[in-house]
Amino acid sequence: MTETTILTVSDLKTSFKVKRAGRKYRVQAVDGVSLSLREGEVLGLVGESGCGKTTVGRSLVRLVQPDSGAIDFKGTDVIAAGGASLRSLRLSIRMVFQDPFASLNPRRSIGDSVAEAGDINDVFKSRSERTALIAQTLVAVGLDPSFAERHPHELSGGQRQRVGIARAILPRPAVIIADEPVSALDVSVQAQVLNLLMDLREQLKLSMLFISHDLGVIERISDRVAVMYMGRIVETADTRTIIDRPLHPYTRALMAAVPKPDPSKRIAGAIETGEPPSQFSRPSGCTYAARCPLRTDRCLAEVPELRASGPERMAACHNLMN
């Protein structure tokens, strides 16, 4: 990992129009997210379901269109990119999706799925080069080249996810956005896929945004962690710091939810009550206030800003825990 920043996200906002009980609403899925990714780094983005993690990932490759903010990839404005520029960016920033079966076309062979981005962008100089690159990429993810002739229904879940990874790395991207890539897999297969991703990171010099709700997985693979709640980043720090000394009350609650065989290692001061507020009626102050044991009147009225709380550490809380 170097200190060179390859991807910078500034005040990103993404919303969706939804209809509920005959009324139209705009749900703010991502609400002012800022983060950065360095060359060769794995940044873990963690939070409970519905917090906006996947929308952040999809916004970065323009699978959904952000409302505002800035996304800079090596000096290129991702949000403004279009046509050939956007296609080129999508070769450099690739996604691995959560559901390996849903992300593969059941009618296409594995080889055609792996080669899809190369076919669309005229990456291959000849038919023989295409065949060779498909075989080489399948081997890189631990599959025999003969898998190119198979179809998704013939593969196990772990094999399908390896195909999803192969499809992502064939164009030799700089950044991988891995969206809950192991959550649909058995525990033993999860370990194999995580090991594969860590090996590919070293071999291909990849940077990675790794999205997960599982802090155990995040701890294993990430260099730094950004904790997300209700569309906002509430804490960022290096992984060891987040795991050993969570600062924000929500981060502490996430850590407390992870089973620990040693009761003395439980996180103190992490009690929370209730459910997250509705996306249809977001509170005016801190979105975590209703569940937070530290809330004050200020929390109910004023949104806390993400501010420095130590070297390379930031948190968004009016009553930071030490």
Rank of each mutant, 00 (worst) to 15 (best):
T241L: 14
I218A: 13
L197G: 03
R232K: 13
P171R: 02
Q192W: 07
F210S: 00
K205F: 08
D223N: 15
I218G: 02
I221S: 05
A178C: 04
H213S: 03
R240S: 13
M198F: 09
T236E: 09
P246V: 07
L215H: 07
N195D: 11
T239C: 15
V187M: 05
A168L: 11
A166S: 12
V182Q: 01
L170F: 02
D186T: 06
K205Y: 06
L196D: 05
T241S: 14
L204R: 07
V175H: 02
I165D: 03
S188A: 13
I221W: 04
I243G: 07
A226Y: 14
D186P: 00
A166N: 15
R224N: 12
S207K: 07
P173D: 09
S183H: 00
L215M: 15
G231R: 04
A168P: 05
N195W: 08
D214N: 14
A178V: 02
I218N: 04
L209N: 03
I233S: 07
I169A: 03
T239P: 09
P171F: 01
A168Q: 05
P173F: 01
E180Q: 01
L215Y: 05
S212Y: 02
A226L: 12
G231I: 06
D199Y: 07
E180M: 00
R224G: 10
R172A: 11
T241K: 15
V227N: 05
E219L: 10
A226S: 14
R172K: 15
R220H: 15
G231M: 10
I211R: 02
E219K: 15
A168D: 09
I211T: 04
V189A: 13
I233H: 08
R232D: 09
L194E: 05
M228C: 12
L196M: 12
Q203A: 11
V217C: 13
I221M: 14
P246E: 08
D244T: 07
M230V: 09
S207R: 05
A237G: 14
V234F: 10
P246D: 05
N195F: 07
A191C: 07
I233K: 06
V227Q: 07
Q190R: 13
L185H: 03
P171T: 03
D238A: 10
A237F: 01
L170Q: 00
I218R: 02
G216Q: 08
E235I: 06
A178P: 00
Q192I: 08
I211P: 02
L196Q: 04
A226V: 13
M230Y: 14
A174G: 12
S183I: 00
K205W: 14
V193S: 12
S188V: 08
S207A: 08
I176F: 01
V182E: 00
L196Y: 09
V227M: 12
L215C: 12
L170C: 02
A191D: 05
S207M: 13
R172C: 10
D179T: 01
A184K: 00
D244Q: 11
V193D: 06
S207I: 10
L197P: 03
R172M: 09
D214C: 11
T239L: 11
R220G: 11
M208S: 04
P173G: 03
I211L: 09
N195L: 09
M208H: 06
V189Q: 11
L209A: 06
